[in-house]
Amino acid sequence: MNNPHVVTWFEIPAADLPRAVRFYEAVFAVTLNQEPCPSGMKMAVFPADGEAVKGCLIQHESYKPSADGSIVYLNGGDDLSAPLARAEQAGATIVVPKTLITPEIGYFAQFIDSEGNRVGLYSMH
């Protein structure tokens, strides 16, 4: 493996891309970049600098939002309490509150997003 990151790209399914974009822009206080895709897919890419792992929201008939599959953990910044609170304000259901893993590893939380996906947050504080 030449890439130092285990994850190189992620896609979060959306049944309604504009709704999902509004949700994630509210949670992370960012602007997602909507890009054209082949074969009828709709995509909105999360902003990321340099070598950061990148990913998107994606809408297509072959992508089904689910709370039962793989869980993507997004960067909660300095303290995941802030984006977790914004997620709840934007309509998310918190399924795992901010939880200490260990003091050396940090914290995680999980919520169900506007599309029905289980998504995680991670931060050191």
Results as ranks from 00 to 15, higher is better:
residue 118 R to W: 09
residue 113 D to T: 09
residue 99 T to I: 01
residue 6 V to D: 05
residue 43 M to C: 05
residue 112 I to H: 05
residue 8 T to L: 10
residue 27 V to P: 00
residue 101 I to W: 06
residue 50 G to L: 04
residue 49 D to M: 12
residue 65 P to G: 00
residue 4 P to L: 00
residue 117 N to T: 13
residue 40 G to A: 11
residue 53 V to S: 12
residue 32 L to T: 01
residue 64 K to V: 14
residue 97 P to K: 12
residue 124 M to G: 10
residue 60 H to N: 03
residue 62 S to G: 09
residue 15 A to F: 07
residue 53 V to T: 12
residue 88 E to M: 11
residue 4 P to A: 10
residue 60 H to R: 00
residue 49 D to N: 11
residue 47 P to V: 05
residue 21 V to C: 08
residue 87 A to P: 05
residue 22 R to L: 08
residue 67 A to D: 10
residue 14 A to Y: 06
residue 58 I to W: 07
residue 76 G to Y: 13
residue 98 K to D: 08
residue 6 V to L: 13
residue 63 Y to L: 15
residue 120 G to M: 13
residue 4 P to T: 09
residue 106 G to M: 04
residue 1 M to Q: 12
residue 31 T to R: 02
residue 61 E to S: 14
residue 12 I to R: 02
residue 91 G to W: 12
residue 14 A to D: 06
residue 88 E to D: 07
residue 104 E to T: 10
residue 37 C to E: 14
residue 115 E to S: 03
residue 2 N to M: 12
residue 98 K to F: 11
residue 33 N to V: 13
residue 69 G to K: 00
residue 96 V to K: 14
residue 23 F to C: 11
residue 18 P to I: 10
residue 80 L to D: 07
residue 66 S to K: 11
residue 103 P to L: 06
residue 125 H to D: 14
residue 63 Y to T: 13
residue 66 S to D: 15
residue 32 L to E: 04
residue 4 P to N: 11
residue 124 M to W: 01
residue 13 P to E: 04
residue 25 E to L: 01
residue 18 P to G: 14
residue 69 G to P: 00
residue 79 D to K: 10
residue 66 S to L: 11
residue 108 F to C: 12
residue 97 P to G: 12
residue 108 F to T: 09
residue 33 N to L: 15
residue 51 E to V: 09
residue 47 P to C: 01
residue 3 N to M: 09
residue 86 R to T: 03
residue 77 G to Y: 10
residue 37 C to Y: 14
residue 53 V to Y: 06
residue 73 Y to N: 04
residue 76 G to M: 09
residue 100 L to T: 03
residue 25 E to I: 06
residue 50 G to Y: 00
residue 97 P to M: 07
residue 40 G to I: 04
residue 125 H to T: 14
residue 47 P to D: 01
residue 26 A to R: 06
residue 79 D to Q: 07
residue 84 L to H: 05
residue 67 A to Q: 15
residue 85 A to L: 12
